[in-house]
Design a protein around this nucleic acid. Sequence first.
DNA 1: CAGCCCGATCTAAGCGCATTGAGAGCCTTA
DNA 2: TAAGGCTCTCAATGCGCTTAGATCGGGCTG
Lengths: 358, 358
Amino acid sequence: MSVAKSPTVYDVAERAGVSIATVSFAFSQPHRVKDSTRNSVLDAARALGYVPSASARGLAKGRTGALGLFSFDFLNFLPDAEGMKKDRAAAVVAPNDDCRLFPVWVDEVQRGVELESFSRGYALMIGGGNKASSERAVTDIAGRVDGLIIFPRTIPADVTRRISARIPVLELSEPSHNDGLHHVTVDNADGVQQLMEHLLGVHGFRKLMFVSIPNVETEARYQAFTAALRARGLEVSPVVESRPGASGVTSELIRNLLASGTLPDCFVCANDEEALVVMETLKAAGVSVPDQVAVTGFDGVVAGRLVSPTLTTVRQPMELMGRTAVEILVDAISQPVSPLVEKQLPVRLVVRESCGCS
Amino acid sequence: MSVAKSPTVYDVAERAGVSIATVSFAFSQPHRVKDSTRNSVLDAARALGYVPSASARGLAKGRTGALGLFSFDFLNFLPDAEGMKKDRAAAVVAPNDDCRLFPVWVDEVQRGVELESFSRGYALMIGGGNKASSERAVTDIAGRVDGLIIFPRTIPADVTRRISARIPVLELSEPSHNDGLHHVTVDNADGVQQLMEHLLGVHGFRKLMFVSIPNVETEARYQAFTAALRARGLEVSPVVESRPGASGVTSELIRNLLASGTLPDCFVCANDEEALVVMETLKAAGVSVPDQVAVTGFDGVVAGRLVSPTLTTVRQPMELMGRTAVEILVDAISQPVSPLVEKQLPVRLVVRESCGCS
DNA sequence: CAGCCCGATCTAAGCGCATTGAGAGCCTTA
DNA sequence: TAAGGCTCTCAATGCGCTTAGATCGGGCTG
């Protein structure tokens, strides 16, 4: 409210009858200042309502004391977001209760990043933005922090390269050769192998199809999928390619399979999001899951526990991924010449109903 | 990785053969610079990997372009957090699958804050910290932003007062007289009234007990609770006082009620968190919900949909609360002498199983 | 052709803090 | 008593950027 110019070190110094250096020391290096002096400085600061400017501090120290997380652009990413924004009134009365929109895995990772940052004394700067302003948005937040975490496939390589010359940058993705970034990811191959052992061994499925948006993450999962099939001498069907948000494509493919009577025993989806679309499509087509066909996912998002049947999946340790990322960045910040770190975390099979287990 | 000092406006200016002012203009006021000049500046910036320093910019402009959100201290707030941290290995294999810990309502509000901030071109600074360093932590983030959002009962009044003299501050709580803060809250009274109409009208309950940690929010809900009872001439039992995280207290009280055979028709809980504790306690005591006693909550968190029976509750428009908060702050930032805003948002009854509906 | 105006660019002065090197007292020690 | 060693404090400088005001060439007008 009050528009009074906010007090600075100068004001505090004057009121306490000392120099600004002493004020600064009183806060940052208490032992260098006599007790009585420090107290009078702190009193003056309190009386004036002094709040140190992080901008000035950051500029002077060459560090901001904050970490950055560049998030997906939910405004474009989430199918309903635009509609929700347009129809604000509707949102009031019928708030978004769709767990496919929140929390997604990004949110769980973010929670881990938050917790670990706070406990290490860093503030967290979260950025996001629409595609159009993407580069602007990311350099904007890069300029505010001492280290940056980014989600896979959100930022062009040349931009991350430029930023990583300034501060350490960690991407939550499979290591990419010589990209100058730290990496934290999960053991995709092992996860799929655990899953396939269950599907092939316990359920005895023989005909399985992989559903995926092709990218680096899903590629690793697909390789493990085909390897498991080949190891048992089973046939490998072509991938069912879906597209983000475009459930139309997936549903058309599934309808074709239905029409030709070539439905597999199980749809192995590259992630939970896909799996939920597939399940919805099957339900709409009157196909029973898991009686007529099984469905599995990968990630372990909350939505998978809310659908019926509940989703069998491979759970990623998302909070831990976030914490680990912070840990690596903090180390890199304190030791600027340390080598790039690439860490792979374990995953865990979560058997629920959609594979045919009860 | 590279420890090369990162380039500044000076470097860019030199390479482009212009003054630093021109570099600055090329970015912030493109129309003031001739096209050819601007291009050569941008080329130079790109070639050097220039990333503007937000600290310097913030200092020069007197604004940071970021909003702040001061979060609960989850490290102390969440019962399991400490254990999880200690046993990191366990967290890897058995990550936290408990929806009572995530997402809680705070997280949903945060999502709204994020989305609205991004779409308005603000970055979001998230702060948190342990109680010991609370004041330090909050002034730290206050020093980094142009406006601050805080959750109820997280920060002492004298601290918020001091900060609000510097930047606009909004608390997500019932307005408190003359505290110098903006407020966004929900219509607690209306929510409870909708709920009570359902419980008294549809279900015909006559004996209801209120379960609560007493504070400003729950007080408003309790008042509406007693008002509804009195309006129908029903008796008002004393509040069952619970304590955060201390399910022991609640369960002891409930056990007493059981022993004395004075179980009510329904436990009306001040929020979902309480309700989940009550349901768990009842289940442990072998009492069937909703057959022997009904339970209701308030908030509409995800966990309420995952328990069995699913939780009847009053849903707050959490994402909208976050968005609204940002909206108010952004206005306040652009018009420093505007009056304090207090906004109340509508809520909605969500009837599920725990009240006895199917 | 002098006088103006205007666009494009530059010069210079901070923004609020951290930090270095030096000064001012004061206490020890020889 | 002088010299040396402390402790506490200060003056001064720079961090990288924005921006008001000055400058400098044209192009126009009369």
